[in-house]
Simulated assay, not measured.
Amino acid sequence: MALLFKFELSTHSVDSYDHLLLMLEEAGASSPPGRLYHVAYGPKDRLKIVDVWDSPPTMGPGQFQEFAEALLPALKDVGIVLQEPDVHDVHTIIQSKRTATRGPRRFLVKFDPPGMTAGQCDEIANSLDEAGLGAPAERLYHVCYREDDELRTISVWEGEEALRAYFDQLALIAVDLGLTEVARTEPVIEEVYHIIDGSP
C-alpha cells in the first residue's frame, strides 16, 4: 500500500524551493526510487507539498534513507525547516498515460466529501468509468487516500475547464447514486507550481 505525505514548506521564498530542487538534482536525488509523485502547489510565498511513496515493504532497502541523506543537508543549506508531514494510507491511484507538459496551467484539486467510504468512492469511480469519464486526458494524476476513517482525493489537472466539467459530472452521478453529501461538496482548486512524476 502506498503512502501519501502532505506538508507545508517553512519558507517564504519560491527561490528556496527551486534551489533545493537544483541541489537534489546535482546530488542525483531529484527522483528518488520509491517516490511515485511529487507536487508543489499553492501560493508561491507558502508552497505546500504532496508526495506519494511506495510503502516501506515494497521499497528497496535503504531507498528512503538514501534520499533523506541527500535531502536533509540540502534543506539546511537553503534554510527550509522540515516540518512533520501528515501521512495517510492510499486507497487507489489513477495515472494518465501521458505526463505533464508546459502548456496549460496545472491545478491540484482537493475533494473532501464528509463521510465518504471506500465503497462509495469505488461506486462513483465505476459509474464514471461506465460513462466514459473515468480517465480524462487532462487529469494527470489522481490519488484516493484515507484520512480519519474517511476517503479523500487529490488530483492534478491540466486546464481548469476540463476539471470543472469533470466535477460537474461527478456531482450528477453522486445525485443519481443518492450520495447527496458527495454531490454538495465543492472541490478546492489550487495552482500547481512544480511536478515530479516518478511513477514506473
Rank of each mutant, 00 (worst) to 15 (best):
G62L: 03
A29F: 02
R98H: 10
P187C: 09
R35H: 00
P32R: 03
D77Y: 02
V182T: 15
M23I: 09
F64Q: 04
E26S: 13
E25P: 01
P136A: 08
Y37I: 01
S55A: 14
L75K: 02
Y17E: 09
D148Q: 13
L170E: 15
A74D: 04
C144P: 01
E191T: 15
C144Y: 09
R139P: 04
A74L: 06
T180M: 13
G62P: 07
A29M: 12
S13P: 01
P57Y: 11
R164T: 02
Y193N: 07
D149M: 05
H142G: 02
Q95E: 06
A74E: 08
E138T: 10
H91Y: 12
V109K: 01
P57C: 03
A29G: 06
I94T: 14
A162K: 01
E181W: 09
L108N: 02
R139I: 10
A70K: 15
I124S: 11
E26R: 10
V175Q: 15
V192Y: 10
H12W: 09
G34Q: 01
A118T: 14
F107C: 03
E181A: 15
F64C: 01
P56F: 07
P61N: 11
M1L: 07
A70M: 02
I94N: 10
S155G: 10
Y37K: 00
D168G: 05
I196D: 09
W53F: 03
S155A: 12
A118F: 10
Q63C: 00
A135D: 15
H91C: 02
S55G: 14
D176L: 05
M59I: 00
R106F: 06
D176K: 14
L75G: 03
P200F: 03
Y166I: 04
